[in-house]
Design a protein around this nucleic acid. Structure first.
Lengths: 131, 131
DNA sequence: GCCGGAATGTTATAGCATTACATTGCCGTG
DNA sequence: CACGGCAATGTAATGCTATAACATTCCGGC
């Protein structure tokens, strides 16, 4: 029941699942949970996810082939978001750092590299799981 | 003909291929090139890659499911390496930044997050391809 | 009403990675 | 030397992730 009225049915279903999940979900895990809603093929999930990623409402975690709802869906800001993924409990923290962003932008400038997209993922154990 | 005499046959074969490649290679691409050397199964490649990653002689690019030889195999240093991947020509630049490393370490400290591994990948176009 | 574009549905297939099990080779100890 | 253990290897089968290709439906603007 998210208030994303501009989304299509499939996109809403997928986003709702991601928002209710406590940990990242694979596309196939999402699909399994949406079979009762009539979804049957992976492509239906991937298409919805593509749009959600474009809109910044969800993120892809490259290092674990999974997806999460954006923790800050209001501010579409942030050209660079970092994720900390706990390998024990699966919890993901989303954060950003101006200085890191500036450093990477500086490197790209010097090298003449035109940036499309940056991924930054820290894997380890969260405070609770490290104890 | 790398001077990695401590490596097993399969590991040497895989590393040689990576070192000779101009762009990242998928495990299956490596396999295809090593069939003449007697390798037949993906697992043989993945096992060799696992060891090479452990030793820091190769890196995995999570965002494109591919592997590269480490550009600086001598210094095993660097807890944090960043990659810039050109989406046009496939060239990969490997670099590191002390300040970025410190910022991320600082975040982890404050959060009590124990880091195992960090991946940082910038995708875009290199100077030549952006022109 | 009609057209065009986006979203959807469906099937098949491509690409990436691991499980499970059998075998081999090597080294250190007794 | 025999033996035991361990790492590496070989092989087959399977599972997971993602996309291609094509047909259909939905919906808003003219």
């Amino acid at each position: 029941m998210s208030a994303h009225t501009d989304l299509t049915r499939n996109q809403s279903l997928v986003l709702d699942r991601l928002e209710k999940a406590e940990t990242p979900m694979s596309a196939y895990a999402i699909l399994d949970q949406l079979r009762d809603d009539g979804l049957r093929a992976p492509l239906q999930i991937y298409r919805a996810l593509d749009k959600l990623l474009d809109m910044g409402l969800a993120h892809r975690l490259e290092s674990i082939n999974a997806f999460v709802a954006c923790a800050h869906p209001h501010c579409h800001a942030s050209g660079l978001i970092a994720f900390a993924i706990c390998e024990k409990c699966g919890q993901v923290s989303e954060f950003s750092d101006e200085i890191v962003r500036d450093r990477l932008a500086g490197w790209a400038d010097r090298e003449g590299f035109v940036v499309n997209r940056t991924t930054m993922e820290i894997r380890g154990n969260c405070r609770a799981c490290a104890a």
